[in-house]
């Protein structure tokens, strides 16, 4: 995959925003991919956590907003606890979700969910899911 990096695709302000929202510094990442190795959801992601960190370092915000990685993240912190650079990657994923959610765009719509599904799910699944997927 080739991603063009130009003044069109690169957004310095998005790097700052991700850092502010997450409280982390994505530039510290050294691309070792321990996060990807630890991630239990990696096989369902279109881009691995390491690649997402790379996109974030270059401020490729348009690319970041169209991929599913952070929507597939389960916030389990397996990446965060093993990161040799001490980055809380789960917080970076949260920052990426929030960039969309704070524009009042939901990733899932509670009102569109099947009644049978809601009836079956334990309350914590709904609370946790709505926290992560709705604004």
């Amino acid at each position: 995959m080739t991603l063009p990096i130009s003044d069109q695709s690169l957004s310095l302000s998005s790097i700052a925003e991700i850092n502010t929202l997450s409280g982390e510094n994505v530039k510290v990442c050294m691309q070792c991919a321990t996060c990807t190795g630890m991630c239990p959801m990696a096989q369902e992601m279109d881009f691995s956590p390491r690649k997402v960190m790379h996109f974030a370092q270059f401020g490729l915000i348009d690319k970041l907003l169209e991929i599913n990685t952070f929507w597939k993240c389960a916030s389990c912190h397996a990446c965060s606890v093993k990161c040799p650079r001490g980055i809380d990657i789960a917080k970076v994923m949260e920052a990426l979700r929030q960039q969309t959610l704070r524009k009042s765009k939901n990733h899932i719509e509670p009102s569109q969910m099947a009644k049978e599904t809601i009836t079956e799910l334990p309350q914590i699944a709904l609370v946790a899911g709505f926290r992560k997927f709705t604004s």
Partner: peptide, 13 residues
């Protein structure tokens, strides 16, 4: 209670 949860899932927000 699930009847209420299904009609008003927004409760969990």
């Amino acid at each position: 209670p699930e009847a209420i949860h299904a009609l008003y899932p927004e409760l969990f927000r």
